[in-house]
Simulated scan of single mutants.
Amino acid sequence: MRIAMVVALTATVAGCVSSPVQYGASLSTQEPKWATPECQQARTDAMNYDAREKEHPGWAAGVVLGPYSMGLVAAIKENEQKQRRLLARQMHLQCSSLPLPKDLDFDPQIYAPKPTHYP
């Protein structure tokens, strides 16, 4: 039970990346890149992801399914955090000419899906 609580707490703290929509709202609309089609597409992708993220049950499913599902819920939350970071990074690159902030300056390939090999 302690392990489940530690995993849940870690996932909660790790899930503190703001949504890409909120990040996009923090960017300057006076930026020349703001009106480009690439920026508009990045903002649309962020809004679509935000809507999809709100549709699934999240932590409520973990409570209903019991303590053994907490690891699954933590993995889902970790994946959501990675997706939010990737979308925020993409939005910054498409909508701002400023250098990447420190928290978004990473290699996006580390979050790319790994190919699975079955025996």
Rank of each mutant, 00 (worst) to 15 (best):
Q40Y: 00
D45G: 00
K102W: 00
A51H: 11
L65F: 08
Q30R: 12
L104P: 06
H92S: 04
P99K: 04
E78Y: 11
L27S: 08
E53D: 13
P32A: 14
T36Q: 10
I110C: 01
Y68S: 07
A42Q: 09
A75I: 05
I110R: 12
Y49V: 05
A46T: 02
T36M: 09
L93P: 01
H117T: 13
C39P: 04
T36G: 10
Q22N: 09
A51M: 10
T29I: 02
V73S: 06
K102R: 12
V7G: 00
R89C: 06
Q90S: 13
A4E: 12
P99F: 05
D107Q: 06
Q40R: 14
S96I: 04
E53Q: 12
Q83P: 01
R43I: 11
G15Q: 01
G58C: 03
E80Q: 13
T44Y: 03
Q40S: 11
T116E: 13
V13T: 07
P32G: 05
K54M: 08
V13Q: 01
L27G: 08
Q81M: 07
P108M: 11
P57D: 11
D50Q: 12
D107L: 03
V63W: 15
Y111Q: 02
Q22E: 14
L93V: 11
L9P: 00
Y68H: 05
T10F: 07
L100I: 03
E55G: 07
L27W: 07
P67Y: 08
Q41T: 15
L86G: 02
K82S: 10
A51T: 14
P57Q: 06
R85K: 15
P113V: 08
K102A: 15
A8F: 11
V6K: 12
W59Q: 01
K77D: 08
K82C: 02
P101T: 11
A14L: 12
A46G: 04
R2L: 14
Q22R: 08
Q22M: 07
P99M: 05
P113A: 14
W59L: 15
P108D: 03
A60P: 00
P108C: 11
P67D: 01
Y111R: 02
P99R: 04
D105M: 04
C39A: 08
P101E: 09
S26M: 10
T116R: 09
K114R: 15
M47Y: 01
D45C: 00
W34P: 02
Q109T: 14
Y118F: 13
N48C: 00
K114A: 13
S96A: 13
L98T: 13
S26V: 06
